[in-house]
Design a protein around this nucleic acid. Structure first.
Lengths: 341, 341
DNA sequence: CTGAAAGCGCTTACAG
DNA sequence: CTGAAAGCGCTTACAG
């Protein structure tokens, strides 16, 4: 293990004092050009690399941003994380990542929040879960936090969210214009903002379209593939005259597709289907699915950009919700209802 | 912004010296039980959270591990990263993540490596690329590095890799046993160890099976979906009597599937197909694809566990290659060759 | 424009 | 068993 070069080594090598080297490296104050040159040569020769830990300790800022996510399993969250990371990198920060541990759900988010706090990160971009919230609330008093994808609700912080009601509205209008009236909504059982907003968007647009909604057409289940499977089974098992189904999450969507195959329900001949998230499997399967597409990369990037703004002083800005627009991508899983539907 | 609690604050609050608090918190040395109790109460009351930066600076170790990956876009790498992260978390470390920036390929890996080095990370788990290698080599002299998924080759470091030749062998034998003789291999054009090993595994097993390989059946292209598309087009366009195709990467596999549809080639009726990575789309599409499945989570976890072993002193252990076994999952994209094939 | 001194928040020999 | 002192590698007032 080679010994590491410190500022003092560079100073000695260049024949100047430590502060001088520091000033040159940080471009602060004016320095004699000749000294600068000499020092830069020493830096080069010795391969000096500043110790960010020491710098952080002294400056009382680390240049590290934490991202607390709900889990990299879902492509959506992985891409969002990439957005956060790229923004951090572009703006001179480093991202530290905490995602759900194993399969234990979100109970680790708080552990991660504490851990990252102990590293004195400059701020956090978080996909909030109910359990992490109380801790974040206290943390908020010390460092800026930006919520992304969903929010725990009272908007006391910046939040970057999808324009959920809008996209859902698009989806509903698409089905209505095809002639559908008996449209079911399959959604996640947890009370997170995304689900609430999509649910509301559904109801509102149906109302605007003048189509009454039978509560039996509103089915909530687990966020998982299994949940989607069960929801679709229940729906079809009920014998109701459904002609179209909207599913609010990608995981559930997969379950719905499998269930439809299991039950011999043809898409879109028997039932039209609209899902969430434009992932590869959605494009590769036959029929390719009509989906509400989100821009996860942009959401992450924007959230992080906002966070850095807060970190760097513009925290005079009043916290608000930033809406990113999704769009409906029409493919082959939606068509006119069956004539007997 | 609330002011933050330091060790000194706890000491004053408990009426003891700073070192005493430090010792109690770190469980080092024996301390009077009464003092301990008093201090712990103060810690609790003040909500003290140690400053890891300061601790790191003093201890000359940060407890941070860096993971340099090839990009979270691919599910494989996202899951692998999750494995690394979980291992880090389980063993008391924090993971810092660097993945490819935007679409610029791997040229940022070196930037990330430098950045993380400046934070004095205790070690790195890296999915190496050719450009990052020279820098890693010098870094290796200071901190432990474990390679994962692929290696730049000379095995001067620990590496956790898939047993590429084995799984490829399984795939080939599966096709041979179905009666195929004219099997094509579509692989990535870059000279990375995964590709080289899979290529060799293909040739070796064909040889063992006593089946000569026409070099025209060996087609290399970009790692991308477009690359796969082109490769399949070239193959079919050549008019060669292929009855089965093996594709070495998931990205290319998607391109092959699309190309087959475009050209009206039926799978497995006209051509049998084996791909890589057991991702959702591979299971959801019809026919569900036969694939060589890797255990990315386990690979990441194991690599990180190994790294921590090195970090914590067992670096007496001679660096070696650790092989993880993949397995062939037979589904509906492989069948007997066409009688006229 | 440059250097000597202090200090960021910890831990760890060193005395007692 | 406990505390005073030094030091990890930096930056930043403070003199000159």
């Amino acid at each position: 293990m080679k010994t590491i070069v410190r500022l003092a080594d560079v100073a000695r090598h260049a024949g100047v004092s430590i502060p001088t080297v520091s000033r040159i490296l940080n471009g602060v104050q004016t320095v004699a050009p000749e000294l600068k040159e000499k020092v830069m040569k020493s830096v080069e020769e010795l391969g000096y690399q500043p110790n960010r830990m020491a710098k952080s300790l002294r400056e009382q800022r680390t240049g590290i941003l934490a991202h607390l996510t709900a889990g990299l399993n879902a492509n959506f969250h992985a891409t969002l994380a990439r957005g956060v990371q790229d923004a951090a990198f572009d703006l001179g920060y480093t991202m530290i990542l905490g995602s759900n541990h194993h399969m234990e759900g979100d109970k680790d988010q708080q552990t991660y929040a504490k851990l990252f706090d102990s590293y004195r990160v400059d701020g956090m971009v978080v996909v909030p879960s109910s359990t992490v919230d109380p801790y974040l609330e206290t943390l908020s008093s010390r460092i800026p936090i930006v919520e992304v994808d969903r929010t725990v609700g009272e908007y006391s912080r910046h939040a970057v969210l999808l324009n959920n009601t809008e996209v859902m509205g698009e989806a509903v209008r698409h089905l209505l214009s095809l002639g559908h009236r008996n449209i079911a909504l399959l959604y996640g059982i947890e009370l997170v903002s995304t689900e609430v907003e999509r649910y509301q968007g559904f109801l509102r647009t149906m109302k605007e379209g003048g189509v009454p909604v039978d509560p039996k057409f509103l089915i909530s289940e687990d966020f998982t593939e299994e949940g989607g499977h069960r929801a679709f089974q229940r729906l079809v098992g009920s014998g109701l005259p459904v002609t179209a189904v909207i599913v609010t999450t990608n995981e559930m969507l997969a379950g719905v597709v499998v269930a439809a195959r299991d039950l011999g329900v043809r898409i879109p001949d028997d039932i039209s289907l609209i899902g969430m998230d434009d992932e590869r499997w959605v494009r590769m399967m036959v029929p390719a699915l009509t989906v509400m597409a989100q821009p996860p990369y942009e959401m992450g990037y924007e959230a992080c950009r906002l966070l850095i703004q807060c970190v760097e002083g513009q925290n005079g800005v009043v916290p608000r919700v930033h809406r990113m627009s999704g769009k409906l991508i029409v493919r082959d899983s939606t068509g006119p209802p069956r004539f007997d539907g």
